[in-house]
Write a protein that binds this DNA or RNA. Structure first.
Length: 269
DNA sequence: AGCTCATGGCGAG
DNA sequence: TCGCCCTGAGCTG
């Protein structure tokens, strides 16, 4: 269930359990067997995350590049590791922990320069210290594409997915169909800093919560969320249900093959 | 057992 | 824009 906060959290969790230690590396499912054999018994040096891309650094030059895609999942557990199921693409294990990766879009061994090339094609990541929000705004402010599509474009901004996209536009009352060039510098500044705060909290809690304290179920005297996506939100997957603020119906539509959610009353062109 | 859907992204046309 | 890749849960029957 991966947006950028999940990947940064995984980078931390892989590092805390495996970094600096000799690691058993296997690929029970088989698609990563050759690389796993090369890495098996070596030391995991460090981990890195940029947007939805995760990197595990082994030795001095080799990196495992992981992208979860829509279906990828990671499961940690204590040693001893149970027999793996046949969909485990990558298992790391040591004397205290194991971790299984299933269903990733990408799990490949890359060189340092190949890793650099991946960073180069990604936009600024609100969760990285080296991020330049101005680089994102330069693209947005020149584009006639909708802001909803631009926020999902990883070359523009890295790490935002369908949930943060919908939620941050709601929180700033921005109509998702507005053109990028109609986003003001002040609006972008506010959206960016909000994403930094929301996504940092997402890393901390390992889930996406976007509802302000004054709009929580407890504060509003309404029943808690029904959806199982994991957090408290304003519009994501709440189509046909009442807006927490105005009471109007949340709408949904297809945008670039993804489900978009917004409140047509609260969010203005 | 088979269908649908999901917080993603790529390449072909 | 479409089809395709990766997996698993929650339906339907």
């Amino acid at each position: 269930m991966p947006e950028g906060h999940t990947i940064h959290r995984l980078a931390q969790d892989y590092a805390s359990r495996f970094a600096g230690r000799v690691t058993q590396v296997t690929s029970p499912q088989g698609k990563f067997s050759d690389a796993a054999a090369l890495l098996d018994g070596t030391v995991l040096r460090t981990t890195d995350a940029h947007g939805k891309h995760l990197f595990l650094g082994f030795g001095n030059a080799d990196w495992v590049h992981i992208h979860l895609g829509l279906f990828g999942k990671v499961a940690f557990g204590p040693a001893p590791a149970p027999p793996p199921t046949d969909t485990v693409r990558l298992r790391l294990a040591n004397a205290t922990s194991y971790v299984d990766l299933r269903g990733p879009t990408t799990c490949a061994l890359v060189t340092g320069p190949e890793k650099d090339a991946i960073h180069a094609r990604l936009g600024p990541d609100p969760l990285r210290d080296d991020a330049d929000p101005g680089a994102a705004y330069r693209r947005i402010s020149r584009s006639r594409t909708t802001i909803a599509a631009l926020l999902m474009d990883q070359k523009v901004i890295a790490g935002v997915g369908n949930v943060y996209r919908a939620e941050v536009l709601f929180r700033h009352r921005i109509d998702p169909y507005r053109s990028g060039k109609d986003i003001t510098p002040a609006e972008w500044d506010a959206v960016w800093h909000d994403l930094v705060a929301l996504m940092r909290e997402g890393v901390r809690n390992n889930r996406i919560d976007t509802v302000r304290p004054e709009h929580t179920p407890e504060a509003m005297g309404r029943p808690p969320r029904v959806d199982d996506h994991g957090g408290e939100v304003y519009v994501y997957r709440r189509a046909m249900r009442p807006c927490h603020i105005c009471g109007g119906e949340i709408r949904t539509a297809d945008l670039a093959a993804r489900n978009l959610f917004w409140c047509p009353t609260c969010q203005r062109a």
